[in-house]
Structures are given as structure tokens and as C-alpha cells.
Design a protein around this nucleic acid. Structure first.
Lengths: 343, 343
DNA sequence: TTGTAAGCGTTATCAT
DNA sequence: ATGATAACGCTTACAA
């Protein structure tokens, strides 16, 4: 495309051979004289020849590019996943095209269109908060287009998903709070339509139930946006009255937990003496805040790696769809720090 | 590429017209009967026709794709920049291909090759910590390949760069520490080969000089990796002895500052009473740590937006190279929080 | 108003 | 050992 870029044709012309000869020489096909090979390669080198990946894509119906659709890059979790994706993709000669939806359904749909138009070989998806219809993904699946969902997975048949055990992670976190002697544990939950939110809520509920603690409905508050500000407002509301004040928080993720901690401090409540706090995701900052935040760590990098490995396998069709594990569930790890440990 | 994907040929065959007619009808070219247009569009719709972007790329020598080469996605600053890039690219119908170098020179070189092979229309670059030779970029520039550097800019002629005023940001930060009464201010600096590191160091030096403070050589310590751990080690070393102990830290970025704060706390030094701390970049966590960290905020999103806008202009050659501003320098903002304010 | 054909860069197939 | 040709999907002179 760049004016200066040499093509196979240029080499062929200059050497008075055919393009097929050049093509073959460059890839060491049998049946090309060493002499020719040498000349071709030398000239290619000199002209700084670089195969045109676009022409190859067209010819081979394969672009060596995978797409990633995620809500937002700036979320630590997602950027960690991308790192894992990039790593595996790069190691296998694949490029990564990135589309962030900013949690918008419309952007997600157009991202899917773009990706299909661009003949990408497969796609990794974690869908937006707004997404409730999955027709756009269904379409891809029906076309047998390689697609792997991670973190946020859809309610569809025959999808391949990579997640962490959100239920167990939440269960362990809440169990830990109970073990520490906390009894009135509220849950700042995530958007209701996401499976991860449901799973974490279930884990929370079951942990309380298993310990014989009756859950009050007002203990579960949805934080749909998951921002610090939202969390501060909600937490302040929950804790401002002395009577019946809860004594612990299990937050849907660390930003929400951090917001809650700020609100608690503003109310002059001590963490963990008055209120224990556990978050989810182990964001970069979680070990640095005061007190350090206990949290459920998700292996983001590993999620990215795993999802990409599976996707690349699907692409190269080493195996058929049926042989793929439908759901890969990775383990979380409860990191106990000061915010939840009674002294 | 997907077996199921309809092409212009399919439509042509089914409708008994030529492919050119279909092509023209689809894009409302003049000189096509309304009747034909209608039929073509209807069928296209029914077959779920989607133009093959790869074929278009090849034909037009234009891929509507830009590349981004950065050290690491997981850095809050870079992911913020990507957000800005994505936003502008998307709004203009461009895709974003992402390559992270993991701060490796070799990866950077191969990324450049990949991008060139893939006929991307332009590239945004913030190079790796290891990079000291710029031949690979020089090659692109000589080919008049559209390229915009941001944040980390090379020592090359005729490049277009988007940065923040690191010098001024650092100067303001250190001036602020001096105004607060701190006198023995150390600088935990960045990798020496990066312009940003040099600029920040200069700002630091000039601020001290302008206030008549003599800088001791041992006050400047390089933190090449910029990790929390590295910073903890270095800070502990710097502050463990009572005599001649410094009384403030200006860190090259917030992670380093956060590490320093952890080290100070471990030494039982109070922030900001005993030691004032200012960071750089306003990472997400900076307002949440204890005490909240004063820092120099960089407009990451805006850097991404600006760089991408310029790149797209270069691509569409609305203007010629000479008319481009060589250096866009955006302003930083000093965010004063508790970590640097003497009570 | 529509069709024909060439071409973007590459490779696979069939000749020679 | 090498060449000619068609094809991938699409656009665009040029012709009709």
C-alpha cells in the first residue's frame, strides 16, 4: 500500500521470472533451483519486501487476526485479560483487534458487524452491561464463527465460556466475614442482568444461609454502575443510622468496596473494628489503600490466556466443536487483608 | 470468509445482473434504476450481505485500521489513552489494532513489521523502556507512513508528538512541596533514556534551584522498573537513617509514590507530617490510598483523542506534513491532596 | 441504465 | 525447474 512497498511482482519483473517462481522461492518450496532461490531472497531483502497480509487474507480467507470485545479497557480486570490475550495471540502469530463497547449495547452490535466485515478469524467477548438480547452473538454462532465468552457469559446454548467461580469466590468471602464474627453483612451487588452478579449474590446468600443467618432484603443493594461515587452514596445511606446498622460489607468489586470504605470513614466508622469489608477482583490499588482491602482475586491474565488458547484451537479446527469444554471455570483466591480481620 | 457469507457475486447471480451493477446499486451510484436498486438492496438484506473489508482494503490500498503500539495495557495511563484512541477511531470508522511490547525492544520491532504487513493506515506509538535505537520508526517515517508518537517521544527529526508538559508538571509539584515548607526533597526518577524522565527531572531540579535549594546528588534515585517493590526497597534505604533524612518525595509516578508511602509507614514516618509525597499521573487508586496522594494529573484520554485526530488527518492527507504541528503539548494539573499538605 | 474487464497481491493448479 | 492462469471480493474506467 505504501508507495515504497515492494511486491512479488516487482521482484519477478526485475529478475525476469514469473511471480509464481518468486512466491515459491520465498517459501522454500521444492522444485526451485538454489540459484533462483538465492537471487530472489537477496533481492527481496534488498527491496525490503514484506508480504502483504491483506492480499493473503483475501486469498486464504484467513486473517490471522482475532477480535476482542470488552466493556472498557480502563478496568484493571479487563486490561489484565487483554494482556493475557495479547500474549497468546502474539506467540501464535495472531493480531488483536480491540473494540470497547463502553457498556453500550449499540456499540456492541456495531462492533460485531465490524469484526465480521473484517474477516477476523475469531472473537473473544465479554458483553456490555446493557446487553440483554444476544441475537447478534447468536448469528455468529449459527455461522459457526469461533467465539469464546469470558467473564460475562450469555444465556445461550452451545457457547464456550471462560469464567471464574464467582459463586465460590463470593461464598468464601462471606464465610470468612462470618468466621470473623460479623453477622449483619450487606451485599453491594452488580448489575442484575449479569450472570457474574447473580453468581456472587448466590454465593453470598448461601454462605449466610449455611451459617443460619437470616438475610434481610434491605441488605442487598444493587450498584449498577459500580462507581466509587455511587457506592459512597449507597453506603452512607445504609450506615448513617445507628440502629440496626450492618457490621460488614461484601462488595461486587473493589471500586465499590473502596467507595464504601471512604463513606465509612466519613461516618467515623472504623474498619475493620466497626465494619468489615471484602471486595472482589483484587484491583491494583487494593493492597495500597488503608486498611488494605481483603478481596477475591480473579486470575485475569490466565482468563485471557485460556480463552485465547481455546479460540485459536477452534480456529485451527484441530478438533470439532463438540469436543470443546463448554465451560472453563477458573478458581478464585481469597486474599485476606486487614479490612476484614477483627483484631 | 465464513462459508455462509454472501458476496456481491451471489447477489448478482441470483438477480441476473452484473457484479458492477450490484456494487453500484448498493452505494446509490447515479445511473442505476430505482427498481434495480430496490431489488439489490432487498436481496442484500435478506442474504445478510456484508462488504468484505479485506477485499476493500486490497482494492483501495486502505484498511481503515490504525495500530497502537504501547508498553503495557495494564498501566492506567495507557489504558486511558487507548480509550481516547478508540473513541475517535470508532467515530471515524476506523479499527484499532493493538500491540503491546511489554517494554521489550524486540517485540516493538516485530510489532512494527506486523503493522506494516497488515497495511494499516497509520500508527500511534509510545515506545518501550528498552528502546534506544529508532531505526524501525525511521524506516516508517521515510516511507511517509503516518505515525504519531505520544507520551514517550523519540529523538528524531520530523516526528509529530503528543505529550504533556512534564517539565512544568514536575516543576509545579516540587514548587508546591517547597511552598509547604519541605526542604530536603528527593526525586524517585524514571528510566533515564526516556524524555519524560528527563523532563520531570529537569522540572524538579529547576524548582529547587529557583528556590535556592542546593540539590544533593544522592537525592536523585532512578527507579527504572517503576514497580511498588522497587520503590519500597529504595525508599527504605533512603529514609532508614535518622541523620540527614530527606523530608519529601517527588516520585516519577504514582505506583512509585505508593510504594514509597508503604515504606515510610513501615518506618513509622508520618505522611505528610514527617514526609511529604507527590506522585505523577493520577492513577485511579491515588485518591483512595491513605493519605490521599497528591499528584500531577495527565489528560490521558485527551492525549489519545488528540493523537488519533492528528493521525487521521495525516492519513486523509487533508494537509501536507509540513502544516502539522510538530509537538502538541497538553497541560497537566496538580492535584493537591493530603499527602503533601502540612497541617 | 447496465455490462465487461482489469487490477489490488498472493497462491494453487495445471501446464510445459 | 519454471510459467501461465485463475481466483479471493470488490471497484472503476470504458464500452455498449
Amino acid at each position: 500500500m505504501k508507495l515504497g512497498q515492494a511486491t512479488i511482482k516487482d521482484i519477478a519483473r526485475e529478475l525476469n521470472v514469473s511471480t509464481s517462481t518468486v512466491s515459491r522461492a520465498l517459501k522454500d518450496y521444492p522444485g526451485i533451483s538454489d540459484e533462483t532461490k538465492r537471487k530472489v531472497k537477496e533481492l527481496a531483502d534488498k527491496l525490503n519486501y514484506r508480504p502483504n497480509a491483506v492480499a493473503l487474507s483475501l486469498r486464504k480467507s484467513k486473517s490471522f487476526t482475532i477480535g476482542v470485545i470488552i466493556p472498557e479497557v480502563v478496568h484493571f480486570f479487563f486490561s489484565t485479560v487483554i494482556s493475557g490475550v495479547e500474549e497468546v495471540a502474539f506467540a501464535n502469530g495472531y493480531n488483536v483487534i480491540l473494540c470497547q463497547t463502553n457498556e453500550k449495547f449499540s456499540r456492541e452490535k456495531s462492533s460485531v458487524e465490524t469484526m465480521l466485515s473484517n474477516q477476523i478469524d475469531g472473537v473473544l467477548v465479554s458483553f456490555s452491561r446493557e446487553t440483554t438480547s444476544f441475537d447478534h452473538f447468536k448469528k455468529m454462532i449459527d455461522l459457526e464463527f469461533p467465539i469464546v465468552f469470558f467473564d460475562r457469559i450469555p444465556d445461550l446454548e452451545n457457547t464456550i465460556n471462560v469464567t471464574v467461580n464467582d459463586y465460590q469466590g463470593a461464598y468464601n468471602a462471606v464465610k470468612h466475614l462470618i468466621d470473623q464474627g460479623f453477622k449483619k453483612i450487606v451485599h453491594l451487588s452488580g448489575p442484575d442482568n449479569l450472570t457474574i452478579s447473580k453468581q456472587r449474590k448466590e454465593g453470598y446468600l448461601d454462605a449466610l444461609r449455611d451459617s443460619g443467618i437470616k438475610v434481610k432484603p434491605e441488605w442487598i443493594v444493587e450498584c449498577p454502575y459500580g462507581t466509587e461515587k455511587e457506592s459512597i452514596l449507597i453506603t452512607t445511606e445504609l450506615f448513617k443510622n445507628k440502629e440496626n446498622r450492618p457490621d460488614a460489607i461484601f462488595a461486587h468489586h473493589d471500586i465499590v468496596a473502596a467507595g464504601a470504605m471512604m463513606a465509612l470513614k466519613a461516618l467515623n466508622l472504623k474498619i475493620p473494628e466497626d465494619v468489615g469489608v471484602v471486595g472482589f477482583s483484587n484491583w491494583q490499588f487494593s493492597s495500597m489503600i488503608d486498611p488494605p482491602l481483603s478481596t477475591v482475586a480473579q486470575p485475569g491474565f490466565q482468563i485471557g490466556e485460556t480463552a485465547t488458547k481455546i479460540l485459536l484451537e477452534m480456529i485451527s479446527k484441530k478438533t470439532n466443536m463438540e469436543s470443546f469444554p463448554q465451560n472453563i471455570v477458573l478458581d478464585t483466591e481469597l486474599l485476606i487483608r486487614k479490612s476484614s480481620v477483627k483484631v
